[in-house]
């Protein structure tokens, strides 16, 4: 029998999710033994035309990481959708928009301005900006269209499963691969990680006082972080109450609060809005002026609460300026 065919692809991605596959170490050999990798731009020399030539549905599963911002990415994921039985959104960026999704606080023009003109490390005296068409020496060079809005993979194509995390932990990848090979998959649309919040599995939860009360919110660098106590109890924002468990509390173990990369559980529709509730509930005052003073100590609520999930949120982006 032929081995199942597998594809890996990357869109608006940092490469960390590709690294996560390589980080399977000796387990990668088991994967390679069991499947036939037919497309993996970062590691193997197959081209777009090779995928175009494949029969529809002939790839058993495509793992796609990165968010979607370019017309080229749009084309590639539609192509892979057509050629694949299953599509798995791999990592926070494909799942929720991820860090590139923070660009939804701006639009295409502002993002390019920043990258090609304003950033301190840019030296661009001729004001050269990427454009979709450039005429040079009588020929025309083309670049993909750069959209205003970063999207999650499932806002562009139909997605069967999600592997959460920035990047996806090795055990979740192996569980998913095993489930796919054995045909023991949960219902379509499932996020392949536990459906409970991180606080439920966090060690610091046990020492949490009955009633938490804070008078100001501090950023991690402003406090000597206690390695045992719940971060919220220390007045430091932790997204544990609104984030799916399954990462092994890897940030918490490194004495850093959760930034929310696993996204919300199935019971939470909007990670940032839910955090507004959790956080407001520990403000230690009923006085309107004092409430406002605590709110004033929170530097960037939208960017912090939606750090990984702005494109996946109900509003998806900052309102576009005219």
């Amino acid at each position: 029998m032929d081995k199942p065919k597998v594809a890996f692809y990357w869109c608006a991605s940092c490469g960390g999710c590709e690294e996560a596959v390589v980080d399977l170490n000796e387990d990668i050999l088991k994967v390679v033994e069991a499947v036939d990798i037919v497309f993996w731009p970062v590691a193997l020399d197959f081209k777009k035309k090779d995928v175009e030539a494949m029969p529809d549905g002939s790839i058993a599963v495509s793992f796609i990481n990165g968010a979607i911002r370019l017309s080229e990415q749009e084309y590639m994921v539609n192509l892979l959708r057509k050629k694949s039985g299953l599509v798995v959104a791999f990592g926070s960026c494909a799942h929720l928009g991820g860090i590139p999704g923070l660009s939804n606080f701006y639009d295409a023009k502002l993002s390019l301005e920043r990258a090609y003109r304003l950033s301190p490390s840019t030296d661009n005296p001729d004001n050269i900006f990427p454009s979709e068409e450039t005429k040079i020496n009588g020929s025309t060079l083309e670049l993909p269209k750069f959209y205003d809005t970063v999207k999650t993979l499932d806002q562009v194509i139909d997605v069967d499963y999600y592997l959460p995390g920035c990047s996806v932990p090795a055990d979740l990848i192996m569980n998913a691969v095993t489930a796919i090979l054995e045909g023991k998959l949960p219902p379509k649309g499932t996020v392949l990680a536990p459906d409970k919040i991180l606080c439920d599995t966090c060690k610091r939860n046990e020492t949490k006082p009955e009633k938490m009360e804070v008078n100001e919110i501090k950023r991690p660098y402003e406090v000597m972080l206690d390695p045992e106590k719940c971060f919220l109890e220390q007045g430091v924002i932790c997204l544990g109450p609104v984030t799916r468990s399954g990462c092994g509390e890897r940030c918490i173990e490194a004495n850093m609060p959760c930034r929310g990369c696993f996204g919300p559980t199935s019971k939470i529709r909007d990670q940032g809005a839910k955090l507004v509730s959790s956080l407001a509930s520990i403000f230690n005052t009923n006085d309107e002026k004092e409430i406002q003073e605590i709110v004033d100590t929170i530097a960037d609520p939208a960017g912090t609460f939606y750090r990984f999930s702005l494109p996946d949120s109900l509003l998806r982006r900052r309102r576009l300026e005219v």
Binding site: F105, G272, A273, V276, S277, L279, A280, S281, F283, N286, E288, I291, Q292, V295, I298, D300, P301, A302, G303, F305, L315, R317, R318, R319, L320, E321
Partner: peptide
């Protein structure tokens, strides 16, 4: 007893958040 105080605490935080989203 406390419901409207809860609403008030959330309201001020939510207001700051939506302003960052251009609302």
């Amino acid at each position: 007893q406390e419901g409207n105080y809860k609403a008030m605490r959330r309201y001020h935080l939510l207001k700051k958040m939506i302003e960052e989203l251009g609302i």
